[in-house]
Design a protein around this nucleic acid. Sequence first.
DNA 1: ATGTAAATTCTGTATAAACAGAAATATTCC
DNA 2: GGAATATTTCTGTTTATACAGAATTTACAT
Lengths: 173, 173
Amino acid sequence: MKLTPVSERFILHWGEMGSRWGVNRTVSQIHALLYIAGRPLPADEITDTLGVARSNVSNSLKELQGWGLISVVHLMGDRRDHFETTGDVWGLAHAIFKERKKREFDPTVDFLRDCVNSPDYGKEEKDAQKRIAATLQFMETVSSWGDELLKLDPETLMKVMKLGAKIQKLIRG
Amino acid sequence: MKLTPVSERFILHWGEMGSRWGVNRTVSQIHALLYIAGRPLPADEITDTLGVARSNVSNSLKELQGWGLISVVHLMGDRRDHFETTGDVWGLAHAIFKERKKREFDPTVDFLRDCVNSPDYGKEEKDAQKRIAATLQFMETVSSWGDELLKLDPETLMKVMKLGAKIQKLIRG
DNA sequence: ATGTAAATTCTGTATAAACAGAAATATTCC
DNA sequence: GGAATATTTCTGTTTATACAGAATTTACAT
């Protein structure tokens, strides 16, 4: 697949940012490619377009499935797997947010709960106890807030975001 | 500094999660230590407590300063630098959120703006153009929402979070 | 100035992640 | 069943990061 200049830049940028987002370059490049392509692509076409090893593509596709970002589809008269991603940026953001929360946030909330319930907890300095408890409480609040937001439909969430700081007035009133 | 069992677990957990959060283990361990200690520590004490090389501590402290998570203080009659972090979980979350947004989000928003304004943009498939534009618009909305939230004081933000999904009613009404 | 403590930078090593290419496995068609 | 195609797993290499320990620099005291 021949890439236009903008597509190419897009894919390269996505790949570079990937490392900051905790996913490797090839994985994010493949995702970007599928997003730009807007149609299901077979692994070989991804391989050719990005110029990486076929095995690398295979593993990366697996990881993207683990993130819930791509799905396999089949085309009539073609035995190859084809891969596609949502063209809908909301769906994407939803999947990414959900998965990152699960991987980066929830384990620590669980851990902190465990700490606080541990028999050793009382042996801690009073100040340290306070800070740990406050951290847990804070993270629990953020966590359930996140879950709530994930439940909202795009339109509502968009309104919430557009509201921005003006929400203060609603709360006070 | 002798660590209690919970403190030790806390620091180790923080260190492990660090890699998922994009910072290395020593960096996050040091931060956790300062957070638990609740008082300014000199580099040597950090070195001894964590059992890592002095040079490693030095570099990690630099990185934590880059994140705006620690500050240097001096104690009377002691020439050594001492390092401390906010004991306030809100302050912490604020600093982390702000910095992550800056590093992981804003560059892509800038990049997408650049794409859309590029002379090559028109050569793109109509569908791809739409998706890129939608991505930009979405990320811009999220970005300014983030900025707004960062401006709110903790109490208000807490109320917003506690409100959760019930915010829908406020919006409709 | 010279010595001493503190902090940083430099250099090499170890570790882990990413990746290519080969080999092996699975799938579908005849 | 066997050939052809598609996919995954395995193995070794490369590359990037983390780190220790040494060397250097900086800051301060006398």
